[in-house]
Simulated assay, not measured.
Amino acid sequence: MTGKVAVVTGASTGIGRAAALGLLKAGYRVALAARRQDALEETAQMAGANSGNALPVATDVSSPEGVEKLFAAVKSKWGRCDLLFNNAGMGVQGYLFEDLPVEKWLQVVAVNLTGSFLCAQQAFRMMKEQSPQGGRIINNGSISAHTPRPDSVAYTSTKHAITGLTKQLILDGRKYNIAAGQIDIGNAATNMTQRMTKGVKQPNGELLVEATMDVQNVANAIVFMDSVTPEANVPFLTVKANLMPWEGRG
């Protein structure tokens, strides 16, 4: 993979940071995108000897102008994009369905869905025009792309929509040698999942402490999905904590 160029959104923390570091370790040149430049610089420094292959670019993925600037920086620095990991996302907690403010709904849609579309579109355009043509786009779908949690209508709706985006990219990208896939992640141990160690609301209303897994498993999966030869694709991959209540959720 040495020399391939990747863009990772949400690279300042959690899954995005782990994926970016995993790609850097595997020999990629990686553009790190998130809102906070200082946190992106920290991610780059964590790559150690590979930090010179990191390009931190403060980006609001919900902004068309911001996303254009991100990919312009990648093109200026490296001339191409071989992989996009569409990972930036957010959710809102503490609201019943009937009480969720429309402003919160729109905020989640803007980051999770519109942001993924904007980044995929810019990557798609670069991959179409570059030589050799093509590349790969991997979307972070989440277990919530399959099964909802209580009180999470905005997050669940956008993650179901990500599956539609992934399928459309698979179809529309074929003629340009662009492959797309979706990784659905369940309970990777990050700052965002710390609450799971204290109890998470279940469908019956009870709180249950849920198992988590090492986030490195996600980084390894991203590298694997992009390691298949160009004529192959991994459309959907699920990696989850073995003991988390997913298959029996409901």
Rank of each mutant, 00 (worst) to 15 (best):
T2C: 00
G3F: 10
G3A: 05
K4I: 11
G10A: 10
A11Q: 06
T13L: 11
T13I: 11
T13Y: 07
I15L: 15
R17I: 03
A18G: 01
A18L: 08
A19P: 06
A19H: 07
L21N: 04
L24R: 12
Y28T: 10
L32A: 10
R36M: 09
R36G: 02
D38V: 05
L40K: 07
L40H: 02
L40N: 00
Q45W: 04
A49S: 14
G52C: 11
N53S: 05
L55P: 07
A58V: 05
T59S: 02
D60K: 10
S62W: 09
P64H: 11
E65H: 13
E65R: 13
V67D: 07
F71Q: 04
A73H: 12
V74R: 12
V74Q: 04
K75R: 05
A88F: 08
M90P: 01
L96H: 13
E98S: 14
V102Q: 04
E103T: 14
E103C: 03
K104S: 10
W105V: 11
V109I: 13
A110S: 14
N112D: 15
N112W: 10
F117W: 12
L118D: 09
R125W: 06
P132I: 04
G134F: 11
G135S: 01
I138D: 00
G141V: 12
I143D: 01
S144V: 00
T147Y: 03
R149F: 02
D151A: 03
H160A: 08
G186D: 01
N187Y: 07
A189M: 09
T190F: 00
M192I: 12
M196F: 03
E206M: 05
L207Q: 13
L208Y: 06
M213Q: 01
V215E: 04
Q216V: 14
N220R: 14
V223A: 10
F224E: 05
F224T: 00
M225S: 03
V228Q: 01
T229W: 00
T229Q: 00
A232L: 02
N233E: 04
P235L: 03
L237T: 08
L237P: 10
K240C: 03
A241Q: 03
L243H: 02
M244S: 14
M244W: 02
G248T: 14
G248R: 13
